[in-house]
Amino acid sequence: MAVPILQINCITKFFGGLKVLEDVSFDLMPGQRFGLIGPNGAGKTTVFNLLSGVYSVDSGSVILANQDITNLPIRKRIGLGLSRSFQNIRLMPHLSVLENVMMGQHCQANRITEMIKPIGWTKNNRWRQRALETIKDAGLEVDLNSTVSELPYGVRKKIEVVRALMSKPSVLMLDEPAAGLNPQETIELAGFLRGISDSNVTLLLVEHDMNFIHAICEKVVVLNFGLKIFEGTPKEVNRNKAVLEAYLGTSAMESSGVT
């Protein structure tokens, strides 16, 4: 039995007196494609913010590759292989596409010489090369020097994914990557993500689009009001009564005759 790459043990989070997550636990295996779903306000994005350290965990622990990262400073986590995107696109609005992507490599520049090397001046440094390669692999076709705030939504969404990939993560967390994309773009994205997963990157997706989840995920966790109500395969989700109740409400189920 393989060792989980990411273990989430009984994490609980309060916002003031409000309990937004209660005793949520699940494990991610290396290379697994994992979906985190649930109705609005279920606490999905909160899980991401706890894992990336934006919020501190009130109780419980997070273990990444056998290392306890529960209280690790935010900036140290990406270097250990934990990378993420955001629900509302959070690219740096005044940086160019290429500069935004190169920000994703920041954690790999550890020595002072790498920090002060004028990479903006030389065309052929390895940082720039790798950024260009990754952009090409992702099928991004944009003017790399254009400022990101001028670009269409779908393109910016994709740049975020590319930026998250630049740190060579072992666990890639994507917050609603397919939201706002058209069906064609969604299919392309699904293919791209499966390709990433094949290179042994673990995927953790928050998503509302169930077709997308079915197309990608091997395993799904369902949250409702901060509680884990289900863990299993995407096929099992559709048959689970608790999940349907959470999404549709009890009365809606009764009136539609589902039992």
């Binding site: 005044h94 500069e99 520049a109």
Partner: peptide
């Protein structure tokens, strides 16, 4: 400003 420090500052 052309270095990674400058990039980080702008970020």
């Amino acid at each position: 400003m052309a270095s990674r420090v400058g990039l980080a500052m702008r970020a």
